[in-house]
Simulated scan of single mutants.
Amino acid sequence: MNILLVYAHPEPRSLNGALRDFAVQRLEAAGHQVRVSDLYAMGWKATLDADDHLDYRPDNPFSPSGDSRQAFANGRQSADIAGEQDKLRWADGLILQFPLWWFSMPAILKGWVDRVYAYGFAYGVGEHSDKRWGSRYGEGNLAGKRAMLMVTTGGWDSHYSARGINGPMDDLLFPIQHGILHYPGFEVLPPFLVYRTSRMDDSRFAALGEELGQRLDNFWQTPPIAYRRQNAGDYEIPALTLRPDLAPQQHGFAAHIERD
Rank of each mutant, 00 (worst) to 15 (best):
D59G: 08
V113P: 13
N74G: 11
D86P: 13
Y117Q: 03
A82R: 14
P64I: 03
A71Y: 14
L109I: 02
H128P: 13
G66T: 03
K131W: 12
D55L: 09
A122S: 11
Y123Q: 05
G124Q: 00
S65T: 10
R89L: 14
R76P: 14
A50M: 01
L48R: 12
D52I: 01
R57M: 15
N74F: 12
N60F: 13
R57G: 12
N60S: 15
D55W: 08
D59W: 13
F121E: 00
I95Q: 08
A50S: 11
P99V: 01
D55K: 04
Q97H: 14
S129T: 11
L54N: 05
F62T: 03
A73I: 06
M105Y: 03
A73D: 15
G66Y: 09
Y117S: 02
I108G: 11
A50W: 08
R69N: 09
Y119L: 05
A122V: 05
Y119I: 00
D92N: 10
F62E: 06
L48W: 13
A79N: 12
N74Y: 14
D86S: 10
Y123L: 03
G120F: 01
W90D: 08
I95K: 08
A50K: 07
G83Y: 04
S68I: 00
G120N: 00
Q70D: 13
D130P: 09
F103P: 10
S78R: 09
G126E: 04
P61C: 04
F103G: 09
G66I: 00
D92C: 00
V113C: 08
V113A: 04
L94E: 05
E84R: 01
S63Y: 14
Y56A: 03
Y123K: 05
D67Y: 06
P61S: 06
Q77G: 13
P58N: 11
V113L: 10
P61F: 09
R115P: 15
L54C: 03
A122F: 12
F72Q: 04
F121W: 02
F62A: 03
F72T: 00
I108V: 11
A91W: 11
P64T: 01
A91V: 06
D51A: 15
G124D: 04
D51F: 08
K131S: 12
D86T: 14
G75L: 07
P61A: 12
L88R: 06
H53R: 04
M105Q: 08
F72C: 03
M105R: 04
G93K: 10
S65N: 12
L109V: 07
G75I: 03
L94T: 01
F62G: 07
I81K: 08
R115T: 00
D59F: 15
G83R: 09
A107W: 05
A73V: 09
W112Y: 15
G66W: 11
L96C: 04
S104V: 00
D51R: 14
D51K: 07
D130G: 10
D92Q: 10
Y117A: 02
A122L: 06
Q70S: 14
N74K: 12
M105S: 11
S68L: 02
K87R: 15
E84F: 05
D49R: 00
